[in-house]
């Protein structure tokens, strides 16, 4: 069962909120992890680990490295689903 883009965004926002304490509604697709949400690299990797688990996908380091915005991550996850 593939997740829709909406579902991935909602799920990812929950993971980010849990990890950082940010309000879920502030985690929108246009936000940059580093510049807007002020998330450090170790926390981004933690979020990636939880996202792999939740959406049952593999996110290679090279892909994660290129995530600028939340939307980038959502697009990758949606595309990586089987």
């Amino acid at each position: 069962m593939a997740y829709t883009e909406q579902e991935v965004l909602a799920g990812l926002a929950e993971i980010v909120a849990e990890e950082t304490g940010l309000a879920v509604e502030t985690v929108t697709a246009d936000k940059s992890f580093v510049d807007d949400l002020d998330i450090d690299s170790l926390s981004i990797m933690t979020i990636v680990t939880h996202a792999e688990d939740k959406f049952e996908v593999t996110i290679p380091d090279e892909a994660a490295k290129d995530f600028n915005t939340v939307g980038d991550a959502v697009n990758f996850i949606v595309g990586a689903q089987g």
């Binding site: 170790l42 933690t46 680990t49 792999e52 593999t58």
Partner: peptide, 10 residues
Amino acid sequence: GRRVLPMTVP
């Protein structure tokens, strides 16, 4: 190994 959290060592 992919489920081990990055914050584990610190």
